[in-house]
Amino acid sequence: MLKKLFQITLLLLTSFCANAQNPDWTRDYKPFRIAGNLYYVGTYDLACYLITTQQGHILINTGTTGSAPMIRSHVEALGFKFTDIRILLTTHAHVDHVGAMAAIKKTTGAKMMINEKDALVLADGGKSDYVLGPEFRFDPVKADRLLHKQDTITLGGMQIIELHHPGHTKGANSFMFTVKDSSRSYRVLIANMPSILDETNLAGMPKYPEVAKDYAYTLGAMKKLQFDLWLSSHASQFELHEKHKPNDAYNPAVFADRKGYDTYLNDLQNAYLKKLKGK
């Protein structure tokens, strides 16, 4: 797992630091039903999730700039109306997860909800991000609702709990909720895994002096979470392509990987401690 984490981190750093877009960020991937009314509608690596209800739908993450047409085609391929999206959420305000947010908000008229500590970055298109430079800008979006730790987002019987997990960004968050199918219910975690960009200085940065403390909090808090299934911001982080192949039958159980989750967090913890020591 440590080797896998290094490979994923290197891929993310290459895409950010070299300002070179990872081709897997825009590579198509067949949408599918994960569990109950939860669906994967993202690209090959940038995970986007659709939660459907009778009163409209919720979209979590949008992928990078230019991804809106692909996401729309995925939503419609699953048999849902794109314009029925009522709420937009994100795990954090980086271009690879909110790059198409402005375009999708304009088309659907959905309400944008984001943790209060990422609202400014979202509103200025990434300009005020504490570590990424202006070359990673995106079309700005003004939030309709500011979320706070443990807030609940509701729509059509769904209750989604916002879990503030800062570090990767000040307002990074995970989401916890329950979905049901004909046989059982599933407690789902969409985790914002606290990876550390190479440019991050854990000794403190002018725009984020408490960054090390926030990472420590997040790593501790995430280890205590209880769930049935887990997913995350990048497909590679939860090994989507090892667990699910296009045209596989519906099988939520493949995402019940507690061991993989714990191992990934332990590797992130070790990477954090190593960086904290300046190694």
Rank of each mutant, 00 (worst) to 15 (best):
I71W: 01
A253L: 13
M205D: 03
N115H: 15
A20T: 14
G126Q: 02
N173I: 07
K105I: 08
D45M: 05
E199N: 13
T91E: 07
K223V: 09
V188D: 03
M158S: 11
Y186L: 10
R187G: 03
P194Y: 06
A249H: 14
H165L: 11
A100E: 02
L147S: 06
T178V: 13
T64H: 06
L50Q: 01
G109D: 10
L146W: 05
V179M: 07
L147Y: 06
T26N: 10
H97W: 01
I161H: 11
L240E: 03
M112S: 10
G99T: 10
P246D: 05
L273Q: 12
P31Q: 04
D248I: 06
Q269Y: 12
G278E: 07
A172F: 04
Y44I: 00
Y264T: 11
L197Y: 12
L12R: 10
I104S: 02
A216K: 12
N251V: 07
D228L: 10
L5V: 14
N251Y: 11
I196G: 00
D257G: 01
K106F: 04
Y272P: 04
G125Q: 00
G278A: 06
K207A: 12
D181Y: 07
G125A: 07
F32E: 03
H168V: 13
V211K: 00
K207W: 08
V141S: 00
H244E: 09
T169D: 08
T62I: 02
D151P: 02
E162T: 14
M112P: 01
A119C: 06
D28Q: 15
A235L: 08
D96G: 05
F136V: 10
Y215N: 06
K213A: 14
K81S: 11
H94M: 13
I160N: 01
K106P: 03
P140M: 10
L120I: 15
